[in-house]
């Protein structure tokens, strides 16, 4: 009997592995293997037809740190993350509160907030081109009405990154709103009533009751926004191409440029590893938080 049970158990284990195998194989091929291969290739010099590539240790990383473009791009991406993450979270929260309130034309309001989410980033960039075009664009038409001189929003270093940031916020805030909306719907309305009876004003209620209850959602959205601040770069291809003079260049765009425009894949690989390290840190932090949460689930 015992023997049979053991056999059965082994059969089930085998079955489990077989079911998971196809997915695990593809995942290894396109995520785990490439991650390791990227690291390996980042340790070799760039080969040319005359000189084969040779092992060069961490030289590529040294080159990156010595390159002023690296620092510009890294700073840009930090600013990009530092602005898009909190601003889109705040917008998302405000949108969710409004889209959840009893207001006229609520479903229109809700879809208006959400629509940018389903557009391709490339299309979003095209839409915004219409706003940013100097002199003739919507923004300059409006500011021109008040007597301001036309501005080359995308073409000058002072405003290029900000213009890119605005498009990202516009694109992702509605997406994050959805998660807040879901969370808000699980909060019993009695809570607000109780707070009101206790004499808590609206602001107090939001700060003391709502925000703490929404904390898990905020963490989830925060992690997503963080990943997006690495991932969302498609609009650069249309709006600025990272220019002028690298003023709006972001890391992933730079990796693409190094690998596919300058054919310098060793340095692109080194940069990729740095990004993966950063994402890895985010992953570890996220798992820790999730673990804490699941204990009382």
């Amino acid at each position: 009997m015992n023997e049979m049970a053991r056999l059965q158990k082994r059969r089930l284990a085998l079955y489990g592995w077989m079911l998971a195998a196809p997915a695990l194989a593809l995942m290894s091929l396109f995520a785990f293997y490439p991650a390791i291969a990227t690291f390996w290739h980042s340790l070799f010099s760039r080969g040319t037809s005359r000189r084969p590539s040779v092992f060069s240790g961490f030289e590529n990383y040294g080159d990156l740190f010595a390159d002023p473009t690296f620092w510009t791009v890294a700073t840009n991406n930090l600013i990009y993350a530092g602005v898009t993450i909190p601003v889109s979270i705040i917008f998302a929260l405000v949108m969710a509160l409004w889209a959840n309130a009893h207001i006229p034309a609520r479903s229109f309001v809700r879809s208006a907030y959400f629509t940018p989410t389903i557009l391709p980033m490339i299309a979003a960039a095209n839409l915004w081109l219409f706003f940013y075009t100097p002199d003739l664009g919507v923004i300059d038409q409006i500011t021109g009405f008040f007597g301001a001189s036309p501005t080359n929003w995308l073409g000058q270093p002072e405003t290029a990154l900000a213009s890119v940031i605005i498009v990202t916020i516009w694109k992702e805030a509605g997406f994050f709103m959805i998660f807040y909306l879901a969370a808000l719907q699980t909060i019993p309305p009695d809570l607000r009533e109780a707070a009101r009876i206790e004499g808590a004003g609206r602001w107090t209620y939001t700060r003391r009751v709502l925000l703490p209850l929404l904390m898990p959602t905020t963490i989830f959205v925060f992690v997503n926004a963080m990943i997006n601040s690495v991932k969302l770069i498609d609009h650069l291809f249309i709006l600025t191409k990272g220019g002028p003079n690298n003023a709006s260049k972001l890391i992933l765009y730079w990796i693409w440029e190094m690998a596919f425009a300058y054919f310098d894949s060793p340095h692109a690989a080194a940069m990729t590893i740095l990004v993966l390290l950063a994402l890895g840190l985010v992953a570890v932090a996220q798992f820790r938080l999730v673990e804490k949460r699941t204990h009382y689930r």
Binding site: M27, P34, T38, V230, K231, A269, L276, L279, V282, A283
Partner: peptide, 15 residues
Amino acid sequence: VLLQLFILPEVLIVE
């Protein structure tokens, strides 16, 4: 598998 959520396919474009 969960770790793959963070190893974005977009980042591994070169390999």
